[in-house]
Amino acid sequence: MSYIRISRIVAVALAAAALGTAAGAQAQPDTGSAEQPLPVGSTIEPPIDCAPTAAHPYPVVVLPGADGTPEQTAAQWDTMVGALRGAGYCTLLFQGGISNDRRWNGDMPGEAGQVADFVTKVRQTTGAAKVEIVAHSAGSIVSNYYLKVLGGAPAVSHAVFMTPEVRGCDGAGVVGIPNPPITPVQMLHALPFLRSALAASSHEFAVAMQMTPDSPVYKAIFDTAVTQPGVTYSVIATRRDQLATPAPACSVIDEPGVVNEVFEDLFPDAAPVDHSLIRSSDDTAGWVLRQLSR
């Protein structure tokens, strides 16, 4: 349900646009199909078998992005989870919205509710007053819905985001064409009837449409300030991001108090990363640890 997924509609949208142009491109009313209820999907919850310490009183809930399958998660997140646990954090990796063997592939408000339920369970089991969230890509969108719309901020001390999708993303990343003449987001804005038509056509499109700029879900997160009182926010992006475009602007939370940093500026001699690989970098893991300690 991210801008990354919106980009998958490009071929369909361009074809529809061609037809619409030939017919005079009469914009049809949006029927609201994109906001019809979607299945939430299942979860994979880790055992809550660790305890906070005096040095690290808040457990860390790790929320992966939508890249890869649940079966690939352990390999993708071994570096980050290993660094957090090695530093003494009670670290728990949670996967939600699992549908068709993909994470965050369901109704986003429902997925945020899954995160809320897991955070409550972690706090009740460990006795911790709050948790920290470390999220990547689509996991950051679900986090922001939980923090802002579902009122989860009082239960969270710090939100650390890697290549999040925020405002101004254009959905053009995976098209593979530099500076396309029209982006998927522009297309949907120009032809608003496409959103409802695509949402009605398949589950995947319905999920993607929840994150278009005209969607109530998007507006609930981004139309006003994203950040919430009492939560510390840290963001790391990469200029080599091929999915959250334009990079790194698409990932910036331009609000007071937010740390926004770019991987290449921090680690000019490091091995290259992209939208996905940033979460598997030792350098990123070290950066996350430094953010959690501030």
Rank of each mutant, 00 (worst) to 15 (best):
D30M: 09
F161H: 13
L19Y: 12
R239M: 14
S202Q: 02
M162V: 15
L198N: 03
F161E: 09
D214P: 05
L243A: 14
Y218D: 04
V288N: 01
G173P: 01
K121C: 06
R239E: 09
P52E: 03
P57I: 05
H203A: 09
L38A: 06
M1Q: 07
Q124K: 15
G86M: 08
K130E: 13
C250D: 03
G173D: 02
A153F: 04
V252D: 02
I4P: 00
Q114I: 14
T73K: 11
V235S: 02
L194E: 06
S33Q: 08
I48M: 15
Q186R: 12
V217K: 07
D223V: 12
A159T: 02
L198K: 00
L289V: 06
E261G: 04
G151Q: 04
D67F: 15
P70F: 08
R239N: 04
T120G: 15
L93S: 01
A247Q: 04
V259H: 14
S7A: 15
T227V: 13
T125F: 11
F193C: 01
H56G: 00
Q291M: 13
V149C: 12
P64T: 10
G20L: 14
A199K: 12
H136D: 12
Y233M: 05
A138Y: 14
A17S: 09
A200Q: 05
I236F: 08
Q291D: 03
A247I: 07
A25Y: 02
V235N: 05
A74Y: 08
P181Q: 10
P37A: 11
Q114L: 15
V160P: 13
E204W: 04
M1Y: 13
V226F: 09
V60N: 05
A190K: 08
H203K: 10
H189V: 05
S215V: 07
R167W: 06
D223N: 09
